[in-house]
């Protein structure tokens, strides 16, 4: 199970790195194409879709490292035990927010399911799905962080 998780994790990291690499290549290609045989219709659209997926998923890793911009100043002043309790509570609230986003996104994704994007002609749900899928990942990460907070809380009693 643990090995499977590690494998899954590396696959996602590789996917994210691949998104950024593809964006770079595709856009550089567009510059060359425009200077030579004429611009392609799809690089702009593809790069926006890859950015949405790559970065929204990458945000889960940042969350996991507690790396998003925030004010830790006051919580740090309270000491480890109350700090861990508050941190756990905050992550519960993040879970509620993410769950609400996913809930609302169901209607949203359904409504654009049959619509096609302008140049790639794929379902418009493809880019939109990045939001609920990433929010599911954030929930998963938050659960792990809450477990961590509880451990800290126990340890410092």
């Amino acid at each position: 199970m643990k090995r499977l998780l590690t494998l899954f994790d590396s696959a996602i990291q590789l996917f994210i790195a691949g998104c950024i690499a593809t964006i770079m290549v595709v856009i550089a290609l567009q510059v060359v194409m425009r200077a030579t045989v004429g611009a392609l219709p799809w690089p702009e659209e593809l790069s926006v879709i890859l950015m949405l997926w790559g970065l929204m998923l990458a945000a889960a890793y940042v969350l996991n490292e507690r790396g998003h911009v925030g004010i830790q100043f006051f919580v740090d002043m309270l000491g480890p035990r109350p700090g861990a309790a508050i941190s756990a509570l905050m992550h519960v609230i993040i879970i509620i927010f993410c769950a609400a986003v996913i809930w609302g996104a169901i209607d949203k994704v359904e409504s654009v399911w049959n619509l096609k994007t302008g140049s790639l002609r794929i379902s418009r749900a493809v880019p939109q799905l990045a939001i609920p899928v990433s929010c599911a990942a954030y929930i998963f990460v938050c659960l792990r962080l809450i477990a961590e907070d509880i451990a800290i809380w126990r340890r410092s009693s």
Partner: peptide, 24 residues
């Protein structure tokens, strides 16, 4: 208000070709 607003406006906030310049 409807919860659809959440993902609707998150998407509006992100879907932009100019924004692709940030990771680059």
């Amino acid at each position: 208000q409807s919860l659809v607003l959440l993902s609707h406006f998150m998407y509006i906030g992100m879907e932009s070709y100019v924004l692709v310049s940030v990771p680059l």
